[in-house]
């Protein structure tokens, strides 16, 4: 029997008590976590085997062939091609297996399911803000419903940051000037650390936050209370803010929302559409493309339209850009 103290060290046990927490890994609080840990412990055991085998040989040889006196005879062995072949091929095969298993779980981790619930994350020195485009609220902590696929679309107002939830095994850099995406599904209610893992200056180590996973009914109650607060303050957020900006910034003058061709292309159904550009290439209209087309519109002009839109670089806040994109994406 293995002493119970050793179990977590071996990556076994404690599954019930700490939701999959082991000596090496934190609790498994997302659907992804068990898969990542499987890959981790596969490599771990391969490593242990190699380490024991190789250091075992070193220590064994060091004692067995310890020099008794200077000048004693040694073997004339200078190598062995068959042995060399073995220790080149075995690591090669194991490497390929590691790559493949790691790659498969990675693919699972980077492609958000189509039915994901959208939350926008805006990072700045040194705090996180969370926008709920479809709910019209903005929150200072990340609250999500349990057992739901959640997609975070992240951007930064200043420097590089990185969004990390150890218990979920998800991490992604947050890059100024573009969007990056992570997704997760937390099956059980609970609270988990959010760390910033890309150095961002004096407040880097206090750029912490918490993700609160609530049961659906509690989540709905939280949403309602947040919406009541937002309504009382009268601040527009999300799609509603985007709609108002669309008029206020005079977008509506050149872009129809019903498919009519004006000076610029119509906005309805744009999201996810493949557009042909003036230079003959095509592009899928995702968040990054819409963002670029607002801030620097003449970079990638849709075929058939003149590059006449003024740039909005520096005239919209991160929240306003996000709101406009969300509004445009909401148009069918």
């Amino acid at each position: 029997m293995i002493p119970s103290l050793l179990l977590p060290l071996l990556g076994l046990g404690e599954a019930a008590a700490g939701q999959g927490k082991t000596f090496w890994m934190p609790p498994q609080a997302s659907t992804l976590a068990p898969d990542v840990d499987k890959v981790f412990y596969f490599i771990y055991w391969v490593d242990i085997a190699f380490f024991v085998l190789m250091m075992g040989a070193v220590i064994f040889f060091a004692f067995k062939y310890k020099q008794k006196k200077e000048g004693e005879k040694t073997s004339s062995n200078k190598g062995s091609h068959s042995l060399e072949l073995v220790w080149a091929v075995v690591p090669l095969i194991l490497s390929v297996v590691m790559f493949v298993t790691g790659f498969r779980v990675y693919v699972e981790s980077v492609i958000p399911p189509a039915d994901s619930y959208d939350v926008r994350v805006v990072a700045q020195k040194w705090s996180w803000a969370f926008e709920y485009p479809s709910e019209g609220i903005e929150a200072s902590e990340l609250v999500v419903p349990a057992d739901t696929n959640v997609r975070l679309t992240m951007s930064s107002k200043d420097v590089l940051h990185s969004f990390f939830v150890p218990d979920f095994r998800v991490k992604k850099d947050v890059v100024p000037g573009r969007y990056t995406v992570v997704w997760f599904n937390a099956p059980e209610p609970g609270e988990h650390h959010i760390f910033c893992t890309e150095y961002c200056g004096d407040g880097h180590s206090v750029m912490l936050n918490t993700v609160k996973v609530l049961p659906q009914d509690e989540y709905d109650a939280w949403l309602a209370s947040q919406q009541a607060v937002a309504e009382a303050e009268g601040d527009l957020t999300g799609v509603a803010l985007g709609e108002s900006l669309f008029t206020k910034k005079a977008c509506v003058g050149c872009h129809s929302i019903d498919g009519t061709k004006l000076v610029g292309p119509p906005m309805n159904g744009l999201s996810g559409r493949t557009e042909e550009l003036a230079d003959g290439t095509t592009i899928v209209a995702d968040d990054d493309y819409i963002r670029e087309s607002i801030l620097a519109p003449t970079t990638k002009v849709v075929a058939g339209y003149a590059p006449s839109m003024p740039p909005f670089e520096g005239q919209l806040s991160e929240t306003e850009i996000n709101a406009l994109i969300d509004y445009i994406k909401s148009l069918d």
């Binding site: 898969d35 990542v36 890959v39 981790f40 490599i43 771990y44 391969v46 490593d47 190699f50 380490f51 490497s95 590691m98 790559f99 298993t101 790691g102 790659f103 498969r104 779980v105 990675y106 981790s109 990185s162 990390f164 150890p166 095994r169 998800v170 991490k171 893992t197 890309e198």
Partner: peptide, 18 residues
């Protein structure tokens, strides 16, 4: 040997910058 965890994508996501 610990480099193998970092070369493998799924585990690197968790371990990167830690």
């Amino acid at each position: 040997l610990t480099g193998l965890f970092l070369a493998t994508m799924a585990t690197d996501v968790h371990l990167h910058d830690t």
